[in-house]
Design a protein around this nucleic acid. Structure first.
Lengths: 197, 197
DNA sequence: TGCTATAAGATACTCAAAGTTTCTTATTTA
DNA sequence: TAAATAAGAAACTTTGAGTATCTTATAGCA
């Protein structure tokens, strides 16, 4: 028992029905827009379909559910930070650059969406959900600082390497404090550098 | 157009229909059990009503929605940590006690539920959602350590006071690492104490 | 150029659960 | 013992997830 069909035959010169990559890109953009406008808890597949001027089955043929669609849109739309690890010649400014990149990404996605994803995609740490190849950036920065003789390598433990990133994440996601330049400076100058210098 | 009613008249000696505080307690327990068994994403009001052997309107008369019901159950059922702030006479062991209490609470509620609540109750920091009057415990501990002469008061900034609690929260909620005694010791001995001593 | 495979799009399902309404009746209280 | 209160039963509306079925536009190929 099929539906009531009103498709018009298109005798025109170029296609009006999108397919493949073009259609996919339109859906990703629509999903992102929907997420930004209504927020994660109100994000619906139907809303995305309407916005992209397509229909639900088209979306379900590509992504199995709400969460995967959101995750895909995030990875597709969000500009990844540059691949190169900052290298200013000074540890402090390198770390501040990394922390600003992280803060930007988290702020753009929004805590509400991140919490929503983490609630549903159980047991997957944030670094796996949203990993812009930033995992090793801090290590690289610290190795360079050791090579320059700026810090001593015995000070560089795994926990201290993660510390600044962890604190920015905590600030954005758990306390909802806006992470200003002052906040970042505080984390770096009051916590991180004293431990490693 | 009301429903089909099969209530039996109870001519017995004592009430079979619960009300007030007794009913409320049964609902809270049912909500907690439901949360523990099916997890936050699958938690339903209908499930709670069935489990508590009552009906949806009874629940909706008291709590406006799913999230508030969960939040109420958490606060009702979860044993709050003791009111007294630990006072062993040594900073290190006091901090370890606090961090273990925090870890216990977060583990009992579960990251999935916490993320779910934070996604829906937008903009409310974790410390307001789940505040077992622990907010000032660290301050008290540090003040006592200053009084004992164990540390100097200039070292005690707001950020350093929050640091150990922040790191445990981050570990449980963001990285999903199990917080062992070793992890807590690492946070205290490798990060916190070196900054404050 | 026309044929065929593919996939888009429309529509209508089913199912579950949120939240509401209406009614009856048990229980408390005055 | 009567009146007020609130529990409980059931059916309702609405929304959205996810699926199934069909038609038809389009791409790629013969």
């Amino acid at each position: 028992m099929g539906g009531f069909h009103v498709n018009k035959k298109n005798e025109g010169e170029f296609p009006t029905r999108r397919r493949g990559a073009e259609l996919e890109a339109a859906i990703m953009q629509a999903a992102w827009d929907e997420l930004m406008e209504v927020g994660f808890p109100n994000f619906t597949i139907e809303g995305v379909a309407a916005r992209a001027q397509t229909s639900k089955p088209v979306i379900y043929r590509r992504w199995p559910n709400r969460e995967e669609l959101v995750l895909a849109a995030i990875h597709k739309i969000l500009p990844a930070p540059p691949d190169e690890v900052p290298n200013t010649g000074e540890l402090r400014s390198d770390v501040i650059i990394i922390l600003n990149q992280l803060n930007d990404i988290l702020r753009k996605i929004g805590p509400e969406t991140i919490h929503g994803l983490m609630s549903v995609l159980t047991g997957i740490p944030l670094s796996e959900l949203i990993n812009f190849r930033r995992t090793n950036a801090m290590s690289t920065i610290l190795n360079r600082a050791v090579e320059r003789g700026e810090i001593r390598h015995e000070k560089v433990t795994a926990r201290i390497t993660r510390l600044p990133v962890d604190l920015v994440r905590h600030e954005v996601l758990i306390t909802y404090e806006p992470v200003s330049q002052d906040t970042i400076a505080e984390i770096v100058d009051e916590i991180f550098l004293p431990l490693i210098k």
